[in-house]
Amino acid sequence: MGEQRIRVLIAKPGLDGHDRGAKVLARALRDAGMEVIYTGLRQTPEQIAATATQEDVHVVGLSCLSGAHLELFPRVVELLKEHGADDILVLGGGTIPAEDISVLKERGVAEVFTPGASTQEVVEFVKRSVNL
């Protein structure tokens, strides 16, 4: 008799302070019926991976507009693996040059959304990717 919900962690790794997109996205996911944990600015990959594991989210969404994505996103993927939580889907978004997207995908990021992406697109993607 439980009710299922998709659970998502939206996280801002690194020192980047651009949170408009992360917050807009968090709300859009909430309004699509998901339980969203948003942990605020300046998260280390260690904090993000630990949080994702404890919270047993289906998806971790990393938002970075400061250009440190190549350093930070793959590190989160690695740490999740170390926690035995590599079933968690990792998504990325923000100011990410086209040529970096394939690098990120190779290193375990499932999809990357860039400026202009619609939040509905993200909602659809998450719903499609998560089997409850």
């Binding site: 690194g14 400061s66 250009g67 440190a68 350093e71 930070l72």
Partner: peptide
């Protein structure tokens, strides 16, 4: 850059990946 704005030197562990980026 962000480390400077947040008061970390370029060799601080939290500066990793952010030095001179933005």
């Amino acid at each position: 850059d962000l480390p400077t704005q947040i008061g970390y030197d370029s060799d601080h562990s939290l500066s990793r990946g952010e030095v001179g980026k933005v």
